[in-house]
């Protein structure tokens, strides 16, 4: 799926995953996958609400079916299919379908510039056993930023702690340092990472 995302992007199609799992569960699964570049929606509260709205919620099992829906920019459904929960979706066929729908579409869209990425020498300082730190590390993984963003553990790495205090005057972590400027609030850190890595602003 990840490998085909550039083709969906070129076809002006936004891919969204949907299941009845929670935000927390999605975040952990995305991390286990080694990062995921498209949003996984939590159809969690009310459970299966979106699945029900489209007719794909399965009462038996309390899950959404493995179904695909393509909606155009006017909100009209252009394709529906299901392969049953145990089936496998044919992603290659779906990308071809999105290509042809894109060619037929007369909707004008701005070409979206590629995500800007992070400035060089950005650093994420974090602490062990800190939920806020963990949230920022999960975002770093999920957004495939491991290569662009050094992560330093100030609980274990004395040098990192010294660097952080020298830079910010305090050993508070998580702390994202962008172009020498510290950002301490974890929601703001995650927002900056999302904006650097995707064309979907947070």
């Amino acid at each position: 799926m990840e490998g085909l995302l550039p083709r969906f992007r070129a076809a002006h199609t936004q891919v969204l995953g949907v299941s009845v799992d929670s935000v927390y569960c999605h975040a952990n699964w995305a991390r286990d996958l080694g990062g995921i570049s498209f949003p996984l929606l939590a159809d969690f509260e009310p459970k299966g609400g979106l699945g029900k709205a489209f007719g794909y919620y399965l009462d038996k099992g309390g899950i959404d079916d493995r179904a695909t829906v393509i909606i155009d920019s006017g909100g009209t459904v252009r394709h529906t299919s299901t392969v049953t929960p145990d089936g496998r979706r044919k992603i290659a066929e779906l990308v071809d379908l999105c290509d042809s729908l894109d060619r037929e579409s007369t909707t004008r869209v701005k070409e979206i510039p590629a995500p800007a990425g992070l400035p060089r020498e950005s650093i994420l300082y974090f602490k062990s056993r800190c939920g806020f730190s963990r949230a920022t590390l999960i975002a770093r993984d999920n957004l495939h930023l491991q290569d662009d963003l050094a992560a330093k553990n100030v609980t274990r790495d004395a040098q990192a702690r010294t660097d952080l205090v020298r830079l910010t005057g305090i050993d508070q972590a998580p702390c994202l340092v962008l172009e020498g400027k510290p950002i301490h609030e974890s929601p703001e850190i995650i927002r900056r990472l999302v904006n650097a890595a995707t064309d979907l602003t947070a």
Binding site: T13, W29, D102
Partner: peptide, 22 residues
């Protein structure tokens, strides 16, 4: 979504299609 962002169809006004993978 998995990063806590609020997502709706309007989020993607600069795309031609949205594909939901249930």
């Amino acid at each position: 979504d998995h990063l806590g962002r609020e997502i709706s169809l309007q989020t993607f006004h600069n795309k031609r299609h949205v594909m939901l993978l249930f």
